[in-house]
């Protein structure tokens, strides 16, 4: 039995909740959980190892009131569009998925592949952490581990404003050269763009529930956070808001 939480917060609280659940899962104090959530207002998260200046266009973020924080997980920068993107988190015991990190990415990302197939689209998992439709990225994931628990969170873009995304994120030149394309815009897509119709948030959430249920072999029970989880998340929000954390590299 897995807990399912559907939620909406600002970027600082969303990242604080994910970290709190990982910490408490590692202590055996939290059930296996899938969160499906929205960033409100729209925001950018960068990977743990990224430099702010190399990954995001800070001036554009400031001019457009887009929040920014650093994740505890590695990987790249992500634009979380309040009207076009659902983020998922899987918080579980490592023993319930796989001790092999690459394999655990594949298993959890198959939930995204399944969800996209609910729309009649063929999606493909590209190791390490991407899901593509027609060669274009619609989802990226990142995983962090503690001794006995893992947190994997990731995106599913169903209607992200790709113009804003392209203005928000910087991609390393070396990486683009290898991809043989010149802009983020040509490398990413959305479910709506692929289907040629505007897909709604509820449709995407329902598809993700089905997709993860199959991928994780999980029966979901809708639930909410415990007081302990809320308390720990509250204590972590300040870190995610701080320049010390965000601009540490």
């Amino acid at each position: 039995m897995w807990r399912l939480i559907i939620d909406e917060n600002n970027v600082y609280r969303n990242m604080a909740i994910d970290e709190a659940l990982l910490i408490l899962k590692d202590r055996g104090l939290t059930p296996n959980t899938v969160r499906l959530y929205v960033f409100n207002p729209s925001a950018v998260t960068i990977g743990y190892f990224q430099r702010v200046d190399d990954s995001v266009n800070l001036e554009f973020l400031k001019a457009n009131n887009i929040d920014l924080t650093r994740r505890i997980s590695g990987g790249g920068s992500v634009y979380h569009d309040v009207n076009g993107e659902i983020t998922y988190s899987v918080i579980t015991s490592i023993s319930d998925i796989s001790y092999n990190i690459s394999e655990s990415y594949r298993i959890i990302c198959s939930g995204i592949v399944n969800a996209i197939s609910e729309f009649g689209l063929k999606a493909e998992f590209i190791p390490i952490n991407d899901v593509v439709v027609g060669g274009r990225k619609v989802s990226g994931s990142a995983q962090s581990r503690r001794k006995s628990a893992l947190l994997q969170h990731g995106t599913l873009m169903y209607g992200t404003d790709l113009n804003i995304l392209a203005n928000t994120l910087k991609a390393p030149k070396e990486k683009l050269r290898d991809h043989k394309v010149t802009s983020i815009f040509e490398r990413v897509t959305t479910i709506s763009r692929e289907l040629g119709r505007a897909v709604g948030r509820e449709e995407v959430i329902n598809a993700l529930i089905k997709g993860f249920s199959k991928a994780l072999n999980a029966d979901f029970v809708r639930g909410w956070y415990t007081d302990e989880e809320v308390g720990l998340a509250d204590s972590l929000v300040g870190k995610y808001k701080s320049d010390e954390w965000i601009f540490q590299r």
Binding site: G47, Y48, F49, Q50, S55, I72, S73, G74, G75, G76, S77, I101, I128, N129, A142, Q143, S144, R145, P172, K175
Partner: peptide
């Protein structure tokens, strides 16, 4: 960078 190194 955008790599994955454990533990971070």
């Amino acid at each position: 960078g955008d790599f994955f190194l454990y533990p971070e």
